[in-house]
Amino acid sequence: MKYPFWLLLAACMSSVHAADGANTRREGIVVDLNAEASRLAPNDLARAQAFVEFGDATPGVLAKKVNTVIQAALATARPYANVKVRSGNTSTYPVYGKSGRTIESWRMRSELLLESRDQAALSELLGKLQSQMAVGQLTLEPSEDATREAENAAIADAIAAFNARAKIVAGSLGGNWRILQMNVNNTSGMPPPRPLMQRNKVAVAAAPMEDMAIEAGESRVSVNISGQIEIDRK
């Protein structure tokens, strides 16, 4: 007796699934485990925002004032090869009179964004720039290299903690254990920047200021290990 092809195919697939189910059936006890570890990473990357903001009745005159300061600041920063400098946001907006309908003047703000792992050079440059611009924000955080190094060390610690917990559980149940699966997660991601200062005042000093003091400190990088172990029954 001949059977249709689709019926034979269905019978074969049913046999395969039955075999797969038999292969994945566990004889031991499956236990979910978690472990976490963290390491400190040095805040070796500094970022700063310097800005200038002026007001004037004429937009063209205002733009010239702001651009003059920005160009002078870029010239001041040029000798500092270890400091990356790029343009930030630039905005111009009207200032209305008491009636709220008439524009009395204009305000313009322009930013420079600075970044460096040479914190001494950045500190010195910021001190000079404060004779022309205001410092809006200064933050410290670990660089990618520092974060990766701390994360790798934390992974090793977390795996060791996972294995230690597995031994405790298996010993309590009186059996041998093996890992079925393991997931490694960076629970903190890139550590949040550590703000050192934020200044909203619009001020341009008359003379260069002292180097800006920077205390780097450290940030904590955390890793979580989750997985399953199987404990053989004796």
Results as ranks from 00 to 15, higher is better:
Ser38Val: 02
Leu196Trp: 05
Ala207Thr: 09
Asp232Gln: 13
Ala50Tyr: 05
Pro4Trp: 00
Ala154Pro: 09
His17Pro: 00
Ala37Thr: 06
Asp32Cys: 02
Val66Asn: 02
Lys201His: 06
Tyr80Leu: 06
Thr147Leu: 05
Val30Pro: 12
Leu9Lys: 03
Leu45Ile: 01
Ser123Trp: 02
Val169Ala: 08
Cys12Phe: 10
Ile70Gln: 02
Ala77Ile: 00
Ala170Tyr: 07
Lys128Gln: 15
Ala150Met: 06
Leu129Lys: 03
Arg178Leu: 07
Asn176Ala: 13
Gln198Ser: 10
Leu9Asp: 08
Asp157Thr: 05
Ala11Gly: 14
Gly60Arg: 04
Glu27Phe: 10
Gly174Arg: 12
Ile231Tyr: 06
Glu151Tyr: 06
Phe54Leu: 00
Lys2Phe: 08
Tyr80Pro: 04
Pro94Cys: 08
Arg101Phe: 14
Gly97Ser: 14
Val204Asp: 04
Ala50Glu: 00
Glu111Arg: 04
Leu9Cys: 11
Asn34Phe: 11
Tyr3Asp: 08
Phe5Glu: 12
Tyr80Ala: 08
Asp211Pro: 15
Asn152Met: 11
Arg47Ser: 11
Thr58His: 10
Thr76Ala: 09
Ala160Cys: 05
Ile179Phe: 06
Gln71Lys: 12
Asp232Glu: 15
Arg109Tyr: 03
Ala160Arg: 13
Leu113Arg: 04
Pro59Arg: 12
Ser110Thr: 07
Val85Pro: 06
Lys128His: 13
Gln132Pro: 05
Asn89Cys: 01
Glu124Phe: 04
Leu112Tyr: 04
Val31Pro: 10
Ala166Arg: 03
Gly171Arg: 03
Asp20Leu: 15
Asn200Glu: 08
Met197Ala: 13
Ser222His: 10
Asn224Cys: 03
Thr102Ile: 09
Ser226Gly: 14
Pro79Cys: 07
Leu122Trp: 01
Ser110Lys: 11
Leu7Ala: 11
Asp20Gly: 09
Ser87Phe: 10
Ser15Met: 14
Ile229Thr: 10
Ser38Ile: 01
